[in-house]
Design a binder for these strands. Sequence first.
DNA 1: TATGAATGAGGGTTCATTCAT
DNA 2: AATGAATGAACCCTCATTCAT
Lengths: 201, 201, 201, 201
Amino acid sequence: MSPRPNVSAERIPQILNAAMLVFAEKGLHQATMADVAQEVGLSKGTLYLYFTDKEALVFSVLQASLDQGYGNLEGILETDRSIKDSLLDWIQKLATQMEDTAVYLSIVYEFYALAGRKEAVRQCLHDYFVKYRKLLSSMIEKGIENGEFGRVDAALVATAILAVYEGVNVLRFTEPTDESWPLTCVRMNQLLLDSISLSSS
Amino acid sequence: MSPRPNVSAERIPQILNAAMLVFAEKGLHQATMADVAQEVGLSKGTLYLYFTDKEALVFSVLQASLDQGYGNLEGILETDRSIKDSLLDWIQKLATQMEDTAVYLSIVYEFYALAGRKEAVRQCLHDYFVKYRKLLSSMIEKGIENGEFGRVDAALVATAILAVYEGVNVLRFTEPTDESWPLTCVRMNQLLLDSISLSSS
Amino acid sequence: MSPRPNVSAERIPQILNAAMLVFAEKGLHQATMADVAQEVGLSKGTLYLYFTDKEALVFSVLQASLDQGYGNLEGILETDRSIKDSLLDWIQKLATQMEDTAVYLSIVYEFYALAGRKEAVRQCLHDYFVKYRKLLSSMIEKGIENGEFGRVDAALVATAILAVYEGVNVLRFTEPTDESWPLTCVRMNQLLLDSISLSSS
Amino acid sequence: MSPRPNVSAERIPQILNAAMLVFAEKGLHQATMADVAQEVGLSKGTLYLYFTDKEALVFSVLQASLDQGYGNLEGILETDRSIKDSLLDWIQKLATQMEDTAVYLSIVYEFYALAGRKEAVRQCLHDYFVKYRKLLSSMIEKGIENGEFGRVDAALVATAILAVYEGVNVLRFTEPTDESWPLTCVRMNQLLLDSISLSSS
DNA sequence: TATGAATGAGGGTTCATTCAT
DNA sequence: AATGAATGAACCCTCATTCAT
């Protein structure tokens, strides 16, 4: 239609990626729109063709981050393994990715901080956590039904899994040289799942 | 001796308190030195007699926060109760304080984010977590020795306790209306400690 | 001949009308080329095919406005009524239009302001006022000759008529709720023309 | 009180004067805060200690301008001369000042334009004109009472005086080389006042 | 003729920091 | 010790203008 191919579709992810990088490196506030622009290879002004605001850009980065999120949890279930093994698999995968996500963790904490002051941000994070809590919870319940787990509070365990993961991330962030964190995370969850498993521990 | 009492000693905590308030309310970056000055009732210029920098002020606030920290853990041990009960007591106390600390959590996450970019901040947080991890670890070990707990990895359990606490805080921060978080936190630790306890569960 | 009808001829008035609207609404400086483009239903780039500059567009709007001007004064004379009645007729017509021109008055004052800094604009306005001053002046003179008016300074009276109209517009602009301004304007001119009329007042 | 003398009181008029100059020279929008700052000999930032906004500065300039206004009209009355002579005296004075005020006229028209879009500005100008209209009106009435003038519509005449003055200013602004405008203005008012005077015309 | 994308200079505004008093 | 005034670097954002298609 237009004389020039519509590059909007590709520009936005480009910008988001660049922004994520720059934000992680310099911090949400220290990073300037000029920094982001330079990283994408666009001019400052062009950024504003795609995002009305720095705030809008930040928010989009948040949403893009959450869309990746904890990864494909539903897919995990579509196997014939036990719930416990499936969960541990997922956790293992998350743990393995820890290395790579470390760079972006800094932004995540800025988002958490932001959640304290911006309702929209809080809502976003809230929905995200609730979604995974529910997914995990239903898996635990399935495990209870099929006799893998005892009659535990599924929601509590689900929350615990998320909490442990988030908590380990915090601790790891202050001790990045220690490379055993992924393992620690997995072992904690093993401990947890073992403790609620019925017989074969 | 001095005609006027040296007010320096009292000024600094005054400023730190004010700064903590203002930082929590507006965010580390949105809060200006003017905001802090106004909160203490001093002029902007005077602030710089006590802190060379905004950075210095921020760092001092971080240290002051950490000095309060998780509370008196050593004191807990000086009882004749079981390790498990002592630990749960401590956790209970922490959980109870959650309500009050919520306001400041926003700064905490900004500090975490800062840790990704400022070595000094990371070091500070690191020392803090290590200190508590060691304290908890030695308690767990004492529990193993006296037969309360099985032969678990004490360091892992200690880390788990901290991780769970930190993780719950994260989740709670995005769902502040739900008031059951303190309870959730305690129950998780009960689950954890139960699972490593030998007989009497 | 050309496969497509040459739309240039119609485009320019379209653009000028749109620009006038937008300029009136937002102000000469607040109105952007994008605003104008959107109002015409063209793209920003296309605007520049018709006007080299924003300045050029503004200037064209000025000229277009002046072309409408105070309306057909010459036509007024082509009757057999007295000069005085003809003039009052014309003033009456102008006064009646006040309502409608009110919207555009805002631009007019911006043009006046511009005249203080742009020679071309001043020249334009100058020629405009001179033209009407001369027309009015010659009418007054005709009135003197045919005995309607006394031996007044025709140029002065002509200027007075214009001044009164311009002045009333200024006052009305700050008091738009009062609806008596057109009447006021007419009465002032009646007063003026009465005072220079010979007998039949 | 303060270690440094409080210069606020002198700064504000300094800034207003500078702003008036710069605004007149470059136009309300083309003039930058930096321009104004440089004119006062202050830094850009300092300007914001005294005016929250450019808008606030503009508005203050408007008010300062109006405070000077048409000059001391009340004072005129405190003589034993006739109303007519007093009024002509005042007009003469205004006319004489035309030369000096010419420079600032450009801003005045921008203010008029602004009045079309900013209620506060309109209000300001409105109050100003009303004030002088009332003053003039009461003078005319006094003239009617003491037999100087016929039973004319005092308000109409008052408005006419202002309108003529404003109108002449407009015309003069587009023909600044002609130096007879002050005279023209006076003669118009003479014509007007003569026409409403009773005997001794 | 038409346009969507891109640009970059420039303006308003903020704020950490300094300093004379 | 205390401060109010001043600074200036830096940031966000706008918008007239260009250009490849």
